[in-house]
Design a protein around this nucleic acid. Structure first.
Lengths: 336, 336
DNA sequence: TAACAGAGTGCAAGCGTTTACACGATCAGT
DNA sequence: ACTGATCGTGTAAACGCTTGCACTCTGTTA
């Protein structure tokens, strides 16, 4: 089951067999057929480790994400896996569980056995990132660093839209529930602050929280301790956690408090009330990233291209509504 | 940055350097230190492809799942990834998107570059599975096949409990919404049928459906076309889809129809009404599977052990309730 | 003191490919 | 008929590591 036995059976040299598998068009048609039948009869297929060693290409790609079980990551992975397989690559996956050290270690471990690496919302220091990018083609999703090809979302704008939406509903005091430190949180936060500033709203922040349901549950009580009438949560999981806890405490959404999330997870469509959220097209982002990576791997584009944008947008549902008329003259509630 | 340069710098042979990295205890302490400092100064680390080729071990594990973005799969992957990294293995992930051919192809592609393979709910034919298992250590999750180490859930019993629960609530006509063909669906179905038979209930089946929210939405209308008062859905996604659509059609859960799901996804706790569901401890299952696999890989246990069980259990929430008293004598509703 | 065990190290033969280079054959252009 | 491309194939040297075997030392044991 090595190349030699195929070569012997087909009456050719190992070089020819090798070429049949790597550059078939460089081999005469009849020779090629002879080799291929021999290979099939022997159930031969090239040994990946040997190919990598000799050829320098591994045929593998790698992706490292903050949390595999997180819906956003999972969808990205799925899209990437799909595309990778279609292009004949196998995919390594590693989750950093949000700890920088593991993230770096995973990436470094992978770098030797992949042809390219995709980093999702990486939190490692700039120089670590650059070092990786020096060792293998790297594309990042959700992070901006000079010299590294990136896929970004227009989350800054989308966050502003979310805040404007709340403003339009009459909210004037609003709180942002921060997620784990890093680019994705930063850009939301900037968008939030800038929008609040521009619109003259009173915006405050609590956190950081883990990007999970339970963290949202916990956050809800902190929110109630403020005078905010609306909350912008780092992601849907947190947002839904907030909604749940608010319900337990008898606070109505959106009548008493409005909630908006991020990601447009399946969750968002399914909770009661349905969650207003900023949709981030995870699958598109994943696909865009893997495409850039493949271009890079194949050396198609040595110049580092400008970051590619996928566009997030606010999806308005039922978890946001007009602020309760506290001492307002403009009461417009119909009598029951 | 090859072993030779490290050897030269440390004044030893390449064999010694190799041993320092593979069996450090076989090298004298001072030599080891010399080698390690040399390696660090040179930023050396062994080339995986070369090690695999020469040593026959890859240091990689692989997992193939039906759908990466599905919450159950994602949690399994997360648990497996965690454990694998902890043990020094890198992890390949492949999603079959529920198509048998892709599943087989992925598994076969991986088999050459891993030391062991974990298949989650595989649907490939028995002989394909056995062929794989002949080529590399294989553990399956959610499938039973003689000679292949497996991790199973006591889903048969748990399904029975679900049906008994419905029976106790007075339901007599119940429908099962099937998921994709395969072991996981089979065992639910058997449990369902047997329980219905035993309890004298009228049980029917519709499907198969894709294991997704939208499929559940679609299924809901089919359910309403029957006279069933309760539905057992293949998983939470479908169950939640059903609930959603029923709500849209003005049918109340659980007042008019009861719904139970499987998996105890985050979704289940968050929808309104909260979903009664059979909890399958995905993380435990993943961990158990990877542990078996590692034992196998390390040759600790050549005898194929009996399938390991992780235990599913019914979690009763608000989506199941007493059947509506149609023409029953035992009305017990308090007047409003 | 001889014999021997064990620890530590080096030598060198692989592991299964890829690919630069060389070679012969075929073919077009002159 | 001669030159030079072009095509198809073979030869053989890597690629970077592991490991069986042999060797040299130190101790131990008798």
């Amino acid at each position: 089951m090595s190349i030699r036995e195929v070569a012997a059976r087909a009456g050719v040299s190992t070089a020819t067999v090798s070429r049949v598998f790597s550059r078939p068009e460089a081999v005469a048609a009849d020779t090629r057929h002879r080799v291929m039948t021999a290979a099939e009869e022997l159930q031969y297929s090239p040994h990946p480790a040997a190919s990598s060693l000799a050829g320098g290409r591994t045929g593998n790609l790698g992706i490292v994400v903050p949390d595999i079980a997180n819906s956003f990551s999972a969808v990205v992975i799925k899209a990437v896996d799909r595309q990778a397989r279609r292009e004949g690559y196998a995919l390594f996956v590693a989750g950093s569980e949000e700890v920088v050290h593991d993230e770096e270690a995973s990436a470094r471990a992978l770098v030797q056995q992949v042809d390219g690496l995709l980093l999702v919302s990486p939190r490692m220091p700039d120089d670590a990132l650059l070092a990786l990018a020096g060792a293998t083609p790297v594309v990042v999703l959700n992070r901006l660093l000079d010299g590294i090809p990136a896929v970004l979302t227009n989350l800054y704008e989308a966050t502003r839209h979310a805040v404007e939406h709340l403003h339009a509903l009459g909210h004037r005091t609003v709180v942002y529930l921060a997620g784990p430190d890093g680019y994705p949180n930063d850009v939301r936060l900037r968008g939030f602050r800038d929008a609040c500033g521009r619109l003259g709203m009173e915006g405050s922040e609590i956190g950081p929280f883990a990007a999970r349901f339970q963290a949202g549950v916990r956050a809800a009580d902190l929110v109630l301790a403020t005078s905010a009438t609306a909350v912008v949560a780092y992601n849907d999981d947190i947002g839904v956690g907030v909604i749940n806890r608010l319900a337990d405490r008898g606070v109505h959404v959106p009548a008493d408090i409005s909630v908006v999330g991020f990601d447009d997870t399946q969750l968002a469509e399914v909770v009661t009330p349905r969650l207003t959220t900023v949709r981030i097209p995870a699958a598109d982002a994943g696909t865009a990233a893997i495409e850039m990576l493949l271009d890079l791997v194949r050396g198609r584009d040595v110049t580092v291209r400008s970051p590619r944008q996928v566009s997030a947008e606010l999806v308005v549902r039922s978890s946001t509504g007009p602020v309760r008329a506290v001492a307002s003259a403009a009461g417009q509630d119909p009598a029951p």
